[in-house]
Design a protein around this nucleic acid. Sequence first.
DNA 1: TCCGAAATATGATATAAATCATATTATGTA
DNA 2: TACATAATATGATTTATATCATATTTCGGA
Lengths: 142, 142
Amino acid sequence: MLSNSSKYALKAVIYLTLHTDDTRKMTVKEISSHIQVPQAYVAKLLQDLSKRDLISSTRGPKGGFYVNETNKSLPISSIVYAVEGRKQFSSCLLGLEDCDEEKPCPVHHRIVSSRSRFLEVLEKTSIAQLAGDLKAKKAFLQ
Amino acid sequence: MLSNSSKYALKAVIYLTLHTDDTRKMTVKEISSHIQVPQAYVAKLLQDLSKRDLISSTRGPKGGFYVNETNKSLPISSIVYAVEGRKQFSSCLLGLEDCDEEKPCPVHHRIVSSRSRFLEVLEKTSIAQLAGDLKAKKAFLQ
DNA sequence: TCCGAAATATGATATAAATCATATTATGTA
DNA sequence: TACATAATATGATTTATATCATATTTCGGA
Ligand code: FES
Ligand code: FES
């Protein structure tokens, strides 16, 4: 239900949240080895997230990617939407021009509430919350 | 959340449910023009569904695709799963090896219920029910 | 029995997503 | 100030999805 890119980006950002802050940065090579995602691929993803200010980075020696307090409080939807757009999550399940209450497709009323609930989770859960579960050993990344 | 192919297949099958049965068949050309999906594309999809016995067909003159009573009572999940597989709907949202209650990823407990609800709709709604809504003008295909 | 209409089988092309590779720019440190 | 390290920018390649095209098989009707 999420693209590969989204999955990779989320894993990377969650990992960064656990292991970095303004004073502790982490290089792409380290990140990719820990979350087992191809280095060049995760590099591209993180560069993009950084450009959009969803994560932070500094270059040069001692540089790397990291997440600051502001970044950590972002909802996970911000990552997903940045990576793959939000349109596909709101467009009609049958591909009609637009998803419309007035002129709904036959699945609309049946599915729309569960879809909203799904999106609500993405939009109301912060990166920090997920990282918290990891730290508390309530969840795992592998 | 559904692939293009799934959307096209569902539209086609719903349309067939409204307009065909054992005695009334419909040619690909007619179908594609009504649901505005490229003819060669929908042809391939319907051929595949027919091979899997999710819809019916006869060839030669007066032939075409159609859905019989058995076909009509199938859940829409059968179409979706036939077209794009079911794995992506049950695999871990973060791409972990398997989606596991025992060793869940950090989004698992937050998202799994809304995902199940989504799948439940696909699995408990029949083609015939959707077509019924169309007939009753409670829903539309364009 | 022959013809044309239809699905079927098969494969070619185009577009998008995923993956890989590399040259460039910025920056801390010796 | 020069060097090494890291992100950045850019683009190439591979793979999957979507789309198009066509020759073959089946079958009803003249
Ligand atoms: S109109 Fe189809 S899902 Fe809303
Ligand atoms: S373990 Fe990730 S969604 Fe279930």
